[in-house]
């Protein structure tokens, strides 16, 4: 697999949300608006990129039996850094994402990439893999957030497309997340099948 593929596979072919169905908790919980989805996606991307880099650097120093606790500590460190930075420089976003930022620690995408990819591959491949999967996640969350925000309140990124009164409130609430996600997954599967 060449380096471009390491990066680009995260968008459609192995998109963590639409194809692998990982990280459903933040996906459903934070995508009430496009900007929240994007913020959550970018925070996760940063953590994924940094943890993949560090894990691939230390993979030969950690004994096998304690690799999972070591990876979790590395991931938790970066999550806490993101949390503190966000609280300091983007307090509004921090407030709307709330509990979901510390929960990035247990996002299975991140530990999954550390265990399945970064602990077996070189630094450059791991960094590209982390960046690709992370941006794929951000891309998925932004699309889902955009669809829900548009259908629910008639806006995208807070720009009004049609009056809010005509919006379907359901899409801002939890059931809308499941419905919208289901339809997007169906469309992506169709696209993937056509290519194959």
């Amino acid at each position: 697999m060449n380096q471009w593929k390491n990066f680009s596979k995260g968008f459609i072919k192995e998109n963590p949300v639409f194809v692998l169905l990982l990280g459903m908790c933040p996906t459903l919980g934070t995508t009430g608006s496009a900007i929240n989805g994007l913020g959550m996606g970018l925070a996760t991307t940063f953590v994924l990129l940094m943890s993949n880099i560090v894990v691939s650097l230390v993979k030969n120093l950690i004994p096998d039996k304690v690799r999972i606790p070591a990876f979790i500590v590395i991931i938790a460190t970066f999550v806490t850094i993101v949390q503190m930075a966000m609280q300091a420089y983007a307090p509004a976003l921090y407030e709307s994402l709330g509990l979901f930022i510390p929960l990035i620690v247990v996002n299975c995408i991140i530990l999954g990439r550390a265990e399945a990819f970064a602990s077996k591959n070189t630094l450059v491949s791991s960094a590209l893999d982390g960046l690709g999967i992370g941006l794929g996640f951000a891309f998925a969350l932004t699309i889902l957030g955009g669809v829900r925000e548009l259908l629910g309140s008639g806006k995208i990124f807070n720009i009004t497309i049609y009056p809010e009164n005509y919006g379907m409130l359901l899409f801002i609430l939890a059931p809308g997340a499941f419905i919208a996600l289901g339809y997007i997954i169906a469309i992506i599967s169709k696209l993937n099948k056509q290519k194959a």
């Binding site: 030969n60 120093l61 004994p63 039996k65 304690v66 070591a70 500590v73």
Partner: peptide, 21 residues
């Protein structure tokens, strides 16, 4: 080579990781 999973190596590895963190 990867260090063996004996007690000493595991303690050192985890100690190192948590210290840096």
């Amino acid at each position: 080579a990867k260090p063996q999973s004996n007690f000493r190596n595991m303690v050192i590895a985890l100690l190192g990781v948590t210290l840096v963190a």
